[in-house]
Write a protein that binds this DNA or RNA. Sequence first.
DNA 1: AATTTCTTATTCATCCGATATTTAACATCG
DNA 2: CGATGTTAAATATCGGATGAATAAGAAATT
Lengths: 260, 260
Amino acid sequence: MSAKRIKSAEKRLKPGRIHAVLTTLGREIAQEIIPAGAVLPPENELEARFGVGRGVVREAIKMLSGKGLVSVRPRHGTHVLPRRDWSLLDRDVLNWLVGQDKLDRELLLAIQEVRSIIEPAAAALAATRATKQDRQRINAALAAMEASNDQASATTADKAFHLAILDATHNPVLQGFRGAIDTILSAVFVVAVDSIAGWFEENIANHAAAARAIEEGDAKRAREAMEQVLGYTHSKLSRKSAGSVRRAARPSGTRSVRKA
Amino acid sequence: MSAKRIKSAEKRLKPGRIHAVLTTLGREIAQEIIPAGAVLPPENELEARFGVGRGVVREAIKMLSGKGLVSVRPRHGTHVLPRRDWSLLDRDVLNWLVGQDKLDRELLLAIQEVRSIIEPAAAALAATRATKQDRQRINAALAAMEASNDQASATTADKAFHLAILDATHNPVLQGFRGAIDTILSAVFVVAVDSIAGWFEENIANHAAAARAIEEGDAKRAREAMEQVLGYTHSKLSRKSAGSVRRAARPSGTRSVRKA
DNA sequence: AATTTCTTATTCATCCGATATTTAACATCG
DNA sequence: CGATGTTAAATATCGGATGAATAAGAAATT
């Protein structure tokens, strides 16, 4: 009895209003636009701001609190919690953190540090436990990396490679890192876009070594190879630590991604 | 220092109806009482079952979906997702998985495997980065372990030890494992309760070695000592793999926890 | 009979307005 | 000045209504 059906054109990314509220608030918190300790506007203000009903706001905030971003207490309001309490391995939280250009470089390095703890160990386990299918998947991803001739497919293949190794551990908890690794790899590629030209040609040998070690069931060598893979990435990231993004697009050299 | 809020320890555990619905459903899913692929009862049935309003059911389910336990689609119902999609490092999810006696031993071993990846690396980092306060905290926890004469305080001290090391890495992502480690340690103690008698006296030397290595900034030795700590635990767990929980209350020998 | 199309019933999505509960801040009293 | 009671801001919950999406069944067509 109120609004006519809004036949608006945006049919694309519309998984519901609650998703919009959730990601908007999530990003604002992750980006520290709303700093830790601050209180969010009360529910009725948020309703007005987003033009949604109370239930939508509440469900969005419930999800935020489920991910440890806010703590909500009656009468006191919903407070933004310190980063220490966030579920930093949650896919959504990670997306909000790295989704924008404000990306906290210190945090990215911390994440990479965790990767370089997890992934070499995962490679070692994969060498022990990988089934034939696992190995096929890993090798296929490697082949795709070698064959890719543009950044998009190279990125996809690289992700597939790391995720395949994670799955090959057959440890469900490690597999739980899939979402995190996926998101992080995207962020790494974005941040290091101007170093990426020589990335694969220099680093693909390390990937190949890891794949071969897994193929042969050599846990020790698999671990070491993966350490090299991540060590290389880390050096690329930390080298350009001060935010001057020197060169964004690299228009001319499409061929440089190709394998030598 | 510490412990001035002990009085609030036994607060009325009535964090609201949402919490009741959430944990009940969460546990039923984690325990596979509602198996993967099954659909939850529709909202109105859940309202009736729990005697709550629609919003409560919705917000609880929203949190479940936020943790990857269910996927909800209009008309299709809310489906339980396979474990592969769950946020296995989420504090709540872990609690539901581990909170009951049905505890999946295979999963527990998988979790321990992740611990034995994370924690030795964390110890090594702690050896490099621990501040004076960090070291004090670690040593205090160790001392508490050595001094504790009942299982409760021993458990608490052991947790504090591991969490202090995690914090001493000064890596926020690693610190994000705090909740998971905390929960897991509780579960480990419960499961291994009948092996726990000699646990500390046998394992406390490993803990002490780790603390000393961190104190001296020796990353390599810290890693190795922590590997020993976890290796010991793992052997205790896997040895009694076939679920015969001998249910040892150990009424008489309180002193055996004490350091030799 | 098989395939396509249409209808419908179920279920989630959202909105609304009212009431209850919580508790920080304030006011009052001894 | 301190203990205690009151208030009010904010969340918690309720329940009814409406909208939207879709899977399954019904109907129509070939």
